[in-house]
Design a protein around this nucleic acid. Structure first.
Lengths: 195, 195
DNA sequence: GTCTATATGCTGATAGAC
DNA sequence: GTCTATCAGCATATAGAC
């Protein structure tokens, strides 16, 4: 068969990541072969190894990219405001950001166990940093007396689980719009933190 | 090598399920081989196929067992009581039942996508039946005027996501006891539903 | 009921041609 | 930068001996 012509390193690199993200989200890391990824990119298996040293690092890069982008976007969205408004902004940010990146969110929760120890530790630290952003808001509101929560750590984890849960049932063609969902969640969260 | 002596069908059957549950939870369905399961049971690969027609059905049986037992236990725990007490009981039941069965809960969330279409549909129906039990409680409280929730369906999903989230961070040797966690969650949920 | 041996095919990764 | 060809090993599942 004729060899593919030309060089596309700047295109192929991102395409490899994109294909891996899509396939890992659909079938799971362990169930996806390098051959499948190559087929999706329309390239031969050997070529993949120009863009990743191995399958494990391909997964790690995807999760690291997701987490660092998530953190950067969150920090950008947060302004110096009263805790109630910051919490509102966090709620809005978390729902929309996660609904827009269903695949990356999904593998970031599902494929953690397929990371080796070192990579797992790195991703866990990023995740904890994200959670801390929320806990800081809750603690501020608590000490200002505008929130009433029993345990800021448990409340943080409960809120994140609740908010992230939206990604498991939201359907683009469902009865509920994103704005409506966000508004209903905000009402629930307001009550939960005692505003 | 010498052949293993004797017949143990009544022991080996459950052992196969137990080993599969443990290994699937730890490494994921796709990453676990029939050879690994056989090794764990201390039996040869061929023997496994006396107890399951294939790997897919082994997974399905585990999820189906978990969901039917969960539903049966929930229904047994629920008594005719005022909605607030029923909700309290649901909260308590969900947290404790899930913490006691971390492996089964984990694969029931993680391995759904490895079920074939028919099997997926069956498990989804059981999951929906479980969710409905909670929604009925919320609707009853809503029409009696003791709860104030905007949308019983969204609230149901939010509460279940929040409660199930405990399984991802609870540690037996952590700073929080099960009873304490359950109590903190109940305080949050009471406020969330407007009690 | 459990064993051993085997079929058929896919796996991650690399070497070397172009 | 991409290709083809290949290695060594493991996958699921079955057949047939005991």
């Amino acid at each position: 068969m004729a060899r593919k012509s030309g060089s596309y390193s700047e295109i192929t690199g991102p395409k490899v990541k994109g294909a891996a993200l899509k396939l890992f989200a659909e079938y799971g890391y362990a169930a996806v072969s390098m051959r499948q990824i190559a087929r999706e990119v329309q390239v031969q298996v050997g070529t993949l190894y120009l863009y990743t040293s191995n399958k494990q690092n391909l997964l790690f890069d995807l999760l690291q990219d997701h987490m660092t982008q998530l953190l950067a976007a969150l920090k950008k969205s947060q302004q110096p405001k009263p805790p109630t408004e910051q919490l509102r902004e966090f709620c809005r940010f978390h729902i929309f950001y996660h609904l827009d990146r269903a695949d990356a969110v999904f593998i970031s929760y599902m494929e953690l166990r397929n990371l080796n120890d070192e990579n797992f530790r790195l991703i866990e630290n990023l995740r904890r940093e994200y959670e801390n952003q929320l806990e800081v808001i809750l603690s501020a509101g608590q000490s200002e007396g505008v929130f009433a929560v029993e345990d800021t750590k448990i409340t943080t984890l409960a809120l994140i689980a609740m908010l992230t849960g939206v990604t498991t049932w939201y359907r683009q063609d469902g009865r509920l719009s994103r704005d409506h969902i966000e508004q209903v969640y905000w009402e629930m969260i307001k009550k939960l933190v005692g505003v």
